[in-house]
């Protein structure tokens, strides 16, 4: 069985929940393929990593990235498409579900006996869920799974596809500084002190 993980990056750094998604993918599938927007990323746990570079995606926009993931899915035919349960990952999930006619499960916290576990009703009850399809879209809650700790490191494949300008018709025009921190891996951005995008108005 194969899983495809979207590795979310911010300013070239991999978000830690993406590494946890790879760890979860390794529980679900024997073969794990990744796809990311970036120039050169070193990520353990992937049998193959598809990389796509585009300056227009320095701020993530879901429509073009869904097209990139769909392109890779077309090549790999993965059973599971796994996303980090971030604001952006959740946005991708809904779009992928529609594009690929796939069932979806957000915010997974556990996996036992072939069933996925997540909180319902503000975590007042925990649901054990059976979900199947080809593919199934899943998003993984931050800190629910351990990051992959093995040594698998596969080849990197540069994606050469053209994204239509129309995919960028909805886009950011201004950024504002983040008050709270967020977790990001590498590049000096690890830890809770990280301030997101940076200064207000910075868009490049």
């Amino acid at each position: 069985m194969k899983a495809l993980v979207f590795v979310e990056t911010v300013k070239g750094n991999v978000r830690e929940v993406s590494l946890e998604a790879i760890g979860f993918a390794r529980i679900l599938a024997e073969e794990v393929v990744g796809v990311a927007v970036g120039k050169d990323l070193d990520i353990k746990g992937l049998d193959r990593l598809y990389l796509y570079e585009d300056e227009r995606l320095s701020i993530p926009i879901s429509k073009p990235i869904v097209e990139i993931i769909s392109e890779v899915q077309g090549r790999e035919n993965a059973k599971y498409i796994i996303l980090p349960s971030t604001s952006f990952g959740k946005e991708l999930g809904g779009r992928l579900s529609a594009k690929l006619s796939a069932p979806i499960l957000d915010d997974i916290m556990g996996y036992e006996d072939g069933m996925f576990i997540k909180g319902f009703y503000s975590n007042k009850v925990f649901a054990r869920i059976k979900i199947d399809g080809n593919p199934v879209v899943l998003s993984v809650r931050s800190r629910a799974f351990k990051p992959y700790e093995g040594n698998v490191e596969g080849e990197k494949i540069k994606l050469d596809i053209t994204l239509e300008d129309g995919y960028f018709s909805s886009k950011p025009v201004e950024l504002k500084e983040r008050k709270r921190g967020n977790r990001c891996y590498g590049g000096g951005h690890r830890g809770f002190g990280w301030k997101g995008y940076g200064k207000s108005g910075e868009l490049s």
Binding site: K90, E91, L92, G94, A98, K99, D106, D107, S122, S170
Partner: peptide
């Protein structure tokens, strides 16, 4: 949706209809 804690409906609709999308 606060019952099943899912965020997917708005992005699904946008993709299915070819509409633009702005979340949150």
């Amino acid at each position: 949706s606060i019952d099943d804690y899912t965020y997917s409906v708005a992005p699904y609709i946008a993709e299915a209809l070819g509409y633009n999308l702005v979340t949150y």
